[in-house]
Design a protein around this nucleic acid. Structure first.
Length: 455
DNA sequence: CTGTCATTTCT
DNA sequence: GAAATGACA
């Protein structure tokens, strides 16, 4: 059969898009493409996707399947083990190549490395691409060759580099396999909740590439200019709300980078100011988190600063439960936790406040907070979650100093001055609204005393 | 003394 | 980041 073009399995993971998808572009340039999504959560243990993530994934896969069908290469859905599914599919299609975009979480790297080796030993070509970061973690290091552990020098280093490559447009037309392939439907994967807790989520979000593009365009038009000032106001709509779209790769960071630069008049990134600079800096934090988890793979489960391993965390299941359900008696904390519960998302300023409350006022381990966020956030991302919680607990990279203990009342006065955010998510005047579960001034003293034990 | 504002201190 | 302390009207 000379003249036949090689078939590529496109293994989709956290790159649920057609736009700026380097593995897809490489596969499509070569010949027919067989896009496949494999559901194998146990391979990501102990950080298997949480309930909110699975909800998002279900809807994102529906959109992705429709988009690939329209482009001419229907999406195949299989269950893991991933290697078995890829091998079976290669056999069914006669594929000679397998392509994917890299992920950087420790368990996934381990799995992917083993899979690559096995596929190559089968005689297949296996190739991976960078589709989810601006720069590869192995390419960014200090002068001494070590990973950055402080954000500002990390960010300066990124700014001094060649710009990330321009994004590649989605292919208009794809060639699929010659014959139809067996595929699971999305429902049997069991990603949706069995009890209907997702009604507010449905109203809040549009998972999928089209939803991501719409969100980005709206942000560029209405949000970017004022972002620097508005991003800290949970009572306003000042953030991009792109985090879940970015997590699932429904939009690429390169696309964002170049879109923001263009919207800001095409100036070099190092010369940007105001909202554009502030927003790209946040994309830089996302990048920083991924690089840190890559270089310090134990930190999803243990503090980066090892002295914190002996911090005397409290065992307080009652307090933890009150925090989770938004019943601490501190309105800004409860509003945040209830926004999270209802929408699968929380404003970043409020994430810092509720995190400080859990680890400093209740002295419950940051890992308990990380686990709760992992299950409830639609943007749950192992790198960002790890960085965020260790930052709040003071045990991570570029961490908050031990003495930075947020006062929930003064934080609320500062960032929710009219009380609109609190009013929206927690009715503190309700008859059953709880009394504060701790005395903040007392809790602060106890936290400082506990921190003293580390020296 | 009492309130305000700036500075220091907190492991 | 904010409580405690100091300077001063």
């Amino acid at each position: 059969m000379s003249g036949m073009k090689p078939i590529t399995l496109l293994w989709l993971r956290h790159d649920l898009r057609l736009d700026d998808n380097p593995a897809l572009a490489a596969a499509a340039a070569r010949g027919p493409v067989v896009p496949v999504f494999i559901w194998a959560p146990e391979e990501e243990s102990p950080w298997e996707p949480g309930a909110a993530s699975r909800w998002w994934l279900h809807h994102s896969l529906e959109k992705l399947a429709a988009a690939f069908a329209k482009a001419g290469a229907p999406l195949v859905i299989r269950r893991g083990p991933s290697l078995d599914a890829l091998r079976a599919l290669a056999k069914e299609t006669g594929a000679t190549h397998v392509a994917w975009n890299r992920r950087y979480e420790p368990a996934v790297i381990k799995r992917d490395t083993a899979i690559k080796k096995a596929l190559v030993s089968d005689g297949l070509e296996a190739e991976s691409f960078n589709g989810s970061l601006l720069y590869e973690p192995m390419h960014v290091a200090t002068k001494e060759g070590r990973p950055y552990q402080v954000f500002t020098p990390f960010w300066r280093s990124l700014l001094s580099r060649d710009e990330p490559a321009a994004p590649v447009a989605a292919p208009h037309k794809l060639t699929g396999p010659a014959k139809a392939l067996k595929s699971l439907a999305i429902d049997p994967l069991g990603l949706l909740p069995t009890i209907a807790w997702d009604s507010t989520m449905k109203k809040t979000w549009s998972p999928g590439e089209a939803g991501a593009t719409k969100r980005l365009e709206k942000f560029l038009a209405d949000g970017l200019t004022g972002y620097g000032r508005e991003r800290d106001r949970p009572d306003h709509d000042g953030t991009s709300a792109l985090s879940p779209h970015l997590h699932f790769g429904e939009v690429s960071p390169r696309r964002l980078w170049h879109a923001v630069r263009a919207a800001a008049g095409g100036k070099p990134v190092a010369k940007l100011t105001g909202g554009a600079e502030a927003f790209l800096r946040e994309i830089g934090w996302r990048e920083f988190a991924s690089h840190l988890l890559f270089h310090f793979p134990h930190t999803s489960d243990a503090p980066l600063r090892s002295d914190y391993a002996r911090f005397p965390w409290a065992r307080d299941p009652v307090g933890l439960r009150a925090w989770q359900r938004g019943r601490t008696g501190f309105p800004i904390v409860d509003a945040g936790m209830r926004q999270l519960w209802a929408t699968g998302w929380m404003h970043n300023r409020v994430r810092m406040i509720v995190a400080s409350f859990l680890v400093k006022d209740l002295r419950v381990s940051w890992l308990e907070g990380a686990k709760w966020f992992w299950d409830t956030l639609v943007d749950a991302d192992l790198a960002a979650n790890t960085l965020g919680w260790q930052w709040a607990a003071g045990c991570g990279a570029d961490a908050a100093p031990y003495f930075r203990i947020f006062n929930p009342t003064s934080q609320a006065e500062k960032f929710d001055p009219d009380g609109a955010y609190v009013k929206r998510w927690a009715n503190a005047d309700a008859a059953d609204y709880p009394e504060p579960i701790v005395d903040h001034a007392e809790a602060r003293k106890l936290a400082l005393a506990a921190l003293k034990t580390l020296t």
